[in-house]
Design a protein around this nucleic acid. Structure first.
Lengths: 162, 162
DNA sequence: CTTAAGTACTTAACATGTTAACTATAGCGC
DNA sequence: GCGCTATAGTTAACATGTTAAGTACTTAAG
């Protein structure tokens, strides 16, 4: 059997662990988990989002997102209200407190990411993210936000078994 | 701020999710989780391993591994005994039942991995795994996490008293 | 021998991952 | 309206992720 330690899923796990190792202690000092930070980052880009869109953009499963939003709401960082056009939907937005927290953390997050880029190299980092994007697109991204066909995928090998 | 969805940690998460999406249902049909399968795969390569080595090779944190081994042991798939040379260590090995389970699953796992390779392309897959390995090595290097940039830049610009 | 420091593993507490089942609303056809 | 199906979100149950603290053994100093 092929070596487990060199398989793609393990390499992806190891690389992500290496990438995140510096972020978690920083976020913890601000009282956030990695996933809570992902939700805040997405919410910071929009005036309001429903839970479905939030789940897709933060790469969280619905049950996890439910718990995270309950926690963020009780901590006063997020506000919820029902969509008047569709009573099934719940809309979420940052509170002023949540916005301030985001504004405090964002520069630190940027600094850590910049260090990653400096250590690994901008070119290599770009190449890696492109290759990862190609892979997700080729294999079939279950979290894909883009429903339109991949018009301009120039780097991917394309489908082989057509 | 940089786009969250195109950041490296998110791309790594998305790619891993895409890679694993077909494995989890298969493993579930055999009554295993992804992490339990990682432990069985590592144990299948050695007559016996202590928990520390098992944790490193399966990329699991010690507390997770403790629970997983307790579960596998009570299911009769793994056997434990203490290291006679060091009573702190616990050694683990597959039982005959565990070995048979591994032998049943291994070909299915191989088949799913082969499909990944066929869809994305062998060359691209090799390039990606190589790049991931480079990244983990570069970022995981303790010298890289130091505040000083790569060689060539002296500490003159930074704080002087280290 | 005795004690202090280190190592290997476990336990605890809380948060998230994962699958399945559940509730409430929406949309459709009759 | 009524019933059917689909969708959005939640809850439940169990497994793992993550950090901190605890336990048992080892090692080395005194």
């Amino acid at each position: 059997m092929r070596g487990l330690e060199h398989s793609l899923p393990m390499q992806l796990l190891r690389a992500r662990e290496a990438a995140m190792i510096a972020f978690r202690p920083m976020l913890r000092r601000h009282g956030l988990t990695e996933q809570q930070w992902r939700v805040l980052r997405v919410l910071a880009e929009y005036p309001a989002l429903d839970a479905g869109e939030l789940a897709r953009r933060s790469l969280l499963l619905a049950p996890s997102l439910t718990r995270i939003l309950q926690h963020l709401e009780s901590a006063g960082r997020v506000r919820r209200h029902r969509d008047p056009c569709d009573q099934r939907r719940a809309l979420f937005a940052l509170t002023a407190t949540g916005r301030r927290l985001f504004n405090r953390i964002a520069p630190e997050s940027e600094a850590l990411y910049a260090r990653l880029e400096a250590v690994f190299g901008s070119a290599a980092l770009l190449e890696l993210t492109q290759l990862l994007q190609d892979f997700s697109a080729a294999v079939g991204d279950p979290f894909a936000t883009d429903s339109s066909p991949p018009t301009g995928v120039s780097r991917a090998q394309g489908k082989i078994g057509d």
